[in-house]
């Protein structure tokens, strides 16, 4: 009951905040920015791979959010809406940097959540983060969008304008690559 009350309360606050933003209230813009900038900055950082590009992309994305918020029909979907704008900006940034998301020949990738990681070894946050950081842009983008941003393969395929099977293949390759890198690091230690 308390959770429901909190949820309703949050929804009302969000509705009110979005409504103030739609009226061009700069204080409301700041509140919206404070509420979402950290999470969105992390998306930018993961997607672009460096702080300078992440900051630029975040700034551009938030300007679009502020300029277009009056088009947002459902205030309840503001998080997904902002996240999508941020992701789109990151993708255009990558395209500007000549990162192409091309079709690849299908390989038998099996079940996407299957036993690829059956070998048990010590995952660590730092090791995974470092491994993802050195992945080729295409792999890193697919892996980030799937694992961290929780988009489906179908949604990712639409965003990158490639087939769903290519997304699955790229994702499995990216995961293998991460495993290899972390394994190598563990072996060195």
């Amino acid at each position: 009951m308390q959770a429901l009350a909190n949820n309703l309360n949050n929804t009302t606050i969000t509705d009110h905040l979005v409504s103030r933003c739609k009226k061009g209230d700069v204080h409301a813009f700041r509140e919206l920015y404070n509420a979402y900038s950290a999470a969105m900055y992390n998306i930018c950082l993961r997607m672009t791979g460096n702080t300078a590009d992440a900051e630029d992309t975040l700034q551009e994305a938030f300007m679009q959010v502020f300029r277009n918020i009056e088009r947002l029909e459902n205030a309840g979907s503001v998080t997904a809406w902002i996240k999508r704008i941020v992701v789109n900006h990151c993708l255009s940034h990558l395209r500007k940097k000549k990162v192409y998301f091309e079709e690849v020949d299908n390989i038998d990738v099996g079940d996407e959540d299957g036993a690829v990681d059956e070998d048990s070894f010590a995952w660590t946050v730092a090791a995974i983060r470092d491994a993802i950081h050195v992945l080729p842009h295409g792999y890193r983008t697919v892996l980030n969008l799937y694992i961290f941003e929780e988009y489906s393969h179908k949604e990712i395929a639409a965003m990158l304008d490639i087939s769903e099977s290519t997304v699955k293949t790229q994702y499995m390759r990216a995961k293998d690559k991460v495993r290899q890198i972390v394994k190598q690091k563990n072996a060195i230690r």
Partner: peptide, 26 residues
């Protein structure tokens, strides 16, 4: 040891988050 990469990331999701953007951005 963890079972899979996805599981590990889901379980330690918040640890992957870094600090927010620099204050000058606003």
């Amino acid at each position: 040891p963890e079972k899979s990469l996805e599981d590990f990331i889901r379980q330690h999701r918040s640890a992957f988050e870094e600090e927010g953007p620099p204050p000058g951005l606003w």
